[in-house]
Design a protein around this nucleic acid. Structure first.
Lengths: 227, 227
DNA sequence: ACAAAAGTGTTAATCTTACACCCATGT
DNA sequence: ACATGGGTGTAAGATTAACACTTTTGT
């Protein structure tokens, strides 16, 4: 290389949750810097002695304090060389799933504000973040059909109607309640807890939980989750 | 950021082909530098004013001169901070498919040697390249079942037996010839050319080709390729 | 005429889809 | 007793899987 390389490396997290029958994404507005007053994904620059994974987790912790149930690398955005107008930045985007009922949002020290936004009604975001979220949503929808990640958006103990709802909302289509239940149960990776949800209306509903160990084990034997 | 960020950004390409009933990957041995005398993936540092995509294509061109049929971003490796002992490097890995009968290998200016290696019998490679190839092979196997990329390893005009062979080898399992043909043809994305392959033994075989436009069109209507 | 690879159809089994009524509880 | 959401079974249709013989050519 003739010139010294001068490319900054950032990470960004697309944090999804599902509430009020909508898929939501977590955005922050920063107090200082070029992103002041602009909604953006949670993220920041990677430190020299920090793995990429550590970097996302640190940013998530510093800026929002949430605990994610699932995190995976999505894609590295670095084809538009002016995606950040200040200087050349590539960003490694991660997508995360959380159960948003498990905590209340509190803005971190650098953040002016943190909020959930419906993915289908986003404001204009910093840089190429709208595009990044689009890609993440796409990956989430695909992945949902061939990996049991829907559970990560729910409480550890959940109702079948809640699980069904996740699939309805995220895949944006109707699902037959009976067939869905039959299929999921036939996999043998969801089990009854023996408990019932107290409710104010209707028949009390059984609480279920996802058996991740069982799933891992079945996967080794060639089992394929497929909705 | 307190300190100046000092992370180098590289790209690497895992180039697959399929010959002699084996999945092969393209490796190079460099003339100079720390990689002298060690087999490694095609790759190198990204230039300041160059997109990631351009960087891979440039490296492929400079180091090997091959023309790939398919290229997609695989994963960004940056969790082991000492994966390159010299300094911190993250690499964005791309996986590529080529039809290796379309050209003969010639080492580029910086390369001492370029060769195809059977994926199941690799020598020890530079850095974490063995691990990267493992991930790429995995992705290839998965993708093969839900996207029509097998064609990218073949000539534009191919025999059904060749296509079948690709699937057998890459998925490492037996395939029923009759069912396979029926299924592929039922998709309507493969068509006869009207030509026949000259051959020295056995009945002459029809030449087929993949209709990519048709596939793109069908995809828009919700068609899912699935083997 | 034989060896080699290509081409082809049917049937049983499995999986998927569509569909509607009863159940347990709170008010 | 009624409103609400939970729970369940069956039959028709579609898809997949298993399986073996005939065809065309070169030698």
């Amino acid at each position: 290389m003739e010139l010294i390389q001068d490319i900054k490396v950032a990470v960004d997290a697309i944090v999804f949750s599902c509430t009020h029958n909508e898929l939501k994404v977590l955005l922050i507005k920063q107090k200082f810097g070029s992103l002041k007053d602009q909604w953006a994904l949670v993220g920041g620059f990677v430190k020299n002695n920090e793995s990429l994974n550590d970097a996302v987790n640190r940013e998530l912790h510093e800026e929002t304090g949430i605990k994610v149930n699932y995190l995976e690398q999505l894609y590295t955005f670095g084809d538009r060389i002016d995606r950040d107008p200040r200087f050349r930045v590539i960003t490694i985007a991660y997508f995360a799933l959380v159960n948003s009922t498990q905590f209340t949002l509190k803005a971190g020290t650098d953040a002016q504000d943190v909020q959930w936004f419906a993915v289908n009604a986003l404001p204009p975001l910093a840089f190429d973040h709208n595009e990044i979220i689009k890609k993440a949503k796409n990956r989430l929808q695909n992945k949902l059909t061939y990996q049991p990640i829907g559970f990560e958006l729910l409480n550890e103990e959940f109702l079948f109607s809640e699980l069904e709802n996740i699939y309805c909302i995220l895949l944006e289509k109707e699902i037959d309640r009976r067939n869905f239940r039959k299929k999921i149960l036939s996999f043998g990776i969801v089990e009854q807890t023996g408990k019932f949800a107290k409710r104010t209306k209707g028949r009390p509903a059984k609480l279920f939980k996802f058996n991740k160990e069982k799933y891992t084990e079945l996967t080794k034997e060639g089992f394929l989750f497929d909705i």
